[in-house]
Design a protein around this nucleic acid. Sequence first.
DNA 1: CACTCGGATTGAAACGTGTCAATAACTTTC
DNA 2: GAAAGTTATTGACACGTTTCAATCCGAGTG
Lengths: 349, 349
Amino acid sequence: MSTSPRATRRTVGITEVARHAGVSPGTVSNVLNRPERVAATTRRKVEAAIAELDYVRNSSGSSLRSGRSGSVGLLVLDVTNPFFTEVARGVEEEAATAGLAVVLLNSAEQQDRQRRNLRLLAEQRAAGAVVMPVDDDLSDLVWLARQGTAWVALDRGDVSEEVGCSVSVDNHAGGLAAGRHLIGLGHERITFLTGPFAIEQVRRRHDGLREACAEAHLDPDQAVRVIEQPQLNADHGERAVDAVLAGGPRRRPQAVFCANDQLALGLMKGLGRRGIRVPEDISVVGYDNVDFADLVHPGLTSVAQPKFDLGRSAMRLLISELNDPDHRHERTWFTPELVVRGSTAARRT
Amino acid sequence: MSTSPRATRRTVGITEVARHAGVSPGTVSNVLNRPERVAATTRRKVEAAIAELDYVRNSSGSSLRSGRSGSVGLLVLDVTNPFFTEVARGVEEEAATAGLAVVLLNSAEQQDRQRRNLRLLAEQRAAGAVVMPVDDDLSDLVWLARQGTAWVALDRGDVSEEVGCSVSVDNHAGGLAAGRHLIGLGHERITFLTGPFAIEQVRRRHDGLREACAEAHLDPDQAVRVIEQPQLNADHGERAVDAVLAGGPRRRPQAVFCANDQLALGLMKGLGRRGIRVPEDISVVGYDNVDFADLVHPGLTSVAQPKFDLGRSAMRLLISELNDPDHRHERTWFTPELVVRGSTAARRT
DNA sequence: CACTCGGATTGAAACGTGTCAATAACTTTC
DNA sequence: GAAAGTTATTGACACGTTTCAATCCGAGTG
């Protein structure tokens, strides 16, 4: 509603609103932050002035004064991975109920990018952060907490309550479930196709698989072969096909358990190219139960993680840490669930 | 390196650094922002003090004083859609070169969420924003510009240079390419499976398809049937299968052109359930060429958009607008490219 | 040697908000 | 109707930074 399109930049502040409404700046501030403390009639006057002047609050000013900003960071390992975006939705939804703005940051699985992003959060005096750490080194997070920014670690089980809150999924149980399923179908030569073992989640899933073998009186060293790829994406899944099939039809695995759906889907594509049928020739199991797992043909059997709830409860933990003055760090565990689809079948031979 | 773990919160500011280095606060500020203006020896002194005190800049203070913050917003329609996350990568990479921090916001295709997020950017005095608008109503963006936050519209062709910069892909050309491909394969009954026609991109793709018909001397009204779904996701693609197959084998379409890969993948799943084979019984074409298009079987023929470059050039435009004082709004066009895979084949009958 | 010039540094004044002790206005009580 | 109590409002200050005119210093010049 400005008169001239190129009017000089007027900078409407709390003081101008106050003048316009005939009250003091302090009252305007109260209307904005603790409306219950101000009488209804003056509140309406102030609100009218705000609307008329098209006042928009300057969050730099407020967070400078109060020492903390009203936004929280969400640092994910890979914005491209559907697993993380689903988690992000959970975080966002919960943050919205607390009136917190979420800034999404991407570490792309690189330590220096993680460090840069954490520093950014410190500079912005972010209220808190939900972080999926790239590796076991949590020293940067400890630093962040010392700067006054609280955090919750996501999907990393080995964070002790001494250091901070965490919410994670039981990766051992996931590996165990996948292993039991495959062994139950009669498979005795299983390949574990994975990313770097430096990733804790991957190690646990592997352990779970091996435990399933032991349960069934199979020697894990005999039954399980490991193929380690540098990254957990579809491209590396496809490239792994040679290694998976090495040894010819007699020694090739009857089933492949992939540490990740992307790997599994890539592998399935590679197998298709080779003319190997899934599940007739080889069963495939993925991990994460990404939406797309249901869209390929055959549907991908996968270990489902409660992605949305994961994000939501991480944010809840963070909010409680922000509000509760004598908060003790907590650890929340989720249990994964196997979703069986067409990519796994009973052993044929 | 603090002595006691629960030391009282010291708030190391620019002034304390100055005192420690034996210079004035102004000099410290210069070291941080225009290092070339300060002599090498004093600069080193200041840097030493910064390191020793573990000083971390308070961005609230600086953006309060300077009137603008050093971060830009990226407002996407759907964080869950791989298309947008790929765009986000391009934006991020380019922003990093300019030292800008990107905050990723999600409008979830809802107008009120878009509005809320734009308001947030105004409150934070963001330097700029890359925005994918939810609909044709750009008034909130005009408002944002009046608040001093520059923006670039992404993937919306009808933004005039009067209003702002934009970068988009020629959706008409995409529809045309898909149509030519299908008609070239001999298909004469084509269904256009789409989201709401309120979305401009969708209308253009439809126009392109019809033009392809006209080129081939087919009456578009005869050849093209439209099925409109409320959302562009896999779920609605799958649900559309009844409508697609309506009319029985004789009247059913020979090919389906989907406005979106998610729709296409959902549809393919639904067709599989019904025992309809792709491409033998029906050819399917998608749009966006999402990574997963290559992972399903058969591979999904799709119209590829230069996702990464789209994000990158939007950010470039924004940066030039921020730096160049007498900037004129620009419009950048990209041309999509058809990627042929296994989901399309010549007409059988 | 006096003078000028240019680069390096300083110091104080904002930027817009939240806080809090102090005051004002209003209500209740006896 | 005055005192005591309660609720609303005020006003000045501080948060940490950037900016800019003013000052300082040392080197070059006539």
